[in-house]
């Protein structure tokens, strides 16, 4: 059964046309999906629907087969502890005034999962599993490079042992050498803990390195979906073809 699902979801702002139109997606345990599209494709809107931050104007978001009701506190608590996220900008996604231990512990604190020594241990564990030293815990975000900050953001996302990780362009802001390292962290988490991964990206390269399936979006609609390799080697729509052709390749 799918863990997280969009069923014919559309989203429109009060004034203006729909930014997401009849999108259906399904993410099962251990699966990895890449959501690829250029600016204005509706990627961030879909992400905010999947995160329960906004509600679809029509259609539904299903979590464990249950329609997501934002007022149902018990359901939302279970949802929040199962579905976590990593954002694009490692500079804006960590509160500059909090130390790393406090940042990473926020889900544990807010969802009432663990406190005190128990929480501390889980935070240390999460930080270690993304490849950071323990002494990182007492520092502030500005003391870290972009790639390290993204590891910290990943640590925060996995500290409550979620089943689904939604990643919004998690490596787009990083240098290529750092990018590889962060992709490896995500891949290891996926392989070792069976974390389902949905990655939003404007760029096929990082999706190819991480996701089995790819959904190509354009103007708020799904234009093509399938196995990542198949889309890359033989895209069926013109748009997907132009996207694949535009990827800069090494000689």
């Amino acid at each position: 059964m799918s863990l997280l699902e969009l069923q014919g979801a559309s989203f429109a702002y009060r004034r203006g046309g729909p930014v997401v139109h009849d999108v259906s997606l399904s993410l099962g345990a251990g699966e990895s999906i890449g959501l690829v599209g250029e600016s204005g494709a509706g990627k961030s809107t879909i992400l905010s629907l999947l995160l329960g931050l906004s509600a679809p104007t029509s259609g539904e978001v299903l979590f464990d087969g249950i329609p997501l009701a934002r007022r149902d506190r018990t359901l939302m608590r279970r949802f929040r502890s199962s579905v976590q996220t990593v954002f694009q900008d490692p500079y804006s996604s960590l509160d500059p005034r909090q130390r790393i231990d406090r940042i990473v512990a926020e889900p544990l604190r807010s969802l009432g999962i663990a406190t005190g020594d128990d929480a501390l241990e889980r935070v240390a564990e999460a930080v270690a599993s993304v490849g950071l030293e323990r002494d990182a815990l007492r520092r502030f975000p500005h003391e870290f490079s972009g790639g390290q900050r993204q590891r910290i953001a990943i640590a925060r996302a996995i500290v409550c042992r979620p089943k689904v990780l939604l990643a919004d362009e998690p490596v787009s802001g990083l240098d290529v050498t750092t990018r590889i390292q962060v992709i490896d962290v995500l891949r290891r988490l996926r392989d070792e803990t069976g974390l389902a991964l949905l990655m939003v990206s404007h760029d096929f390269t990082s999706v190819a390195a991480l996701c089995e399936r790819t959904v190509v979006l354009k103007d708020g609609r799904v234009v093509e979906e399938g196995a990542t390799g198949s889309i890359l080697s033989s895209p069926t729509t013109d748009y997907a073809r132009s996207l694949v052709a535009a990827i800069p390749r090494l000689p």
């Binding site: 931050l53 954002f87 694009q88 996604s93 960590l94 509160d95 926020e106 889900p107 807010s110």
Partner: peptide, 17 residues
Amino acid sequence: GEQFVTASRTSGTRWPG
């Protein structure tokens, strides 16, 4: 408007928090 506020909400923190 900062992402860490969104991150906080998706961590399950309510508005007062």
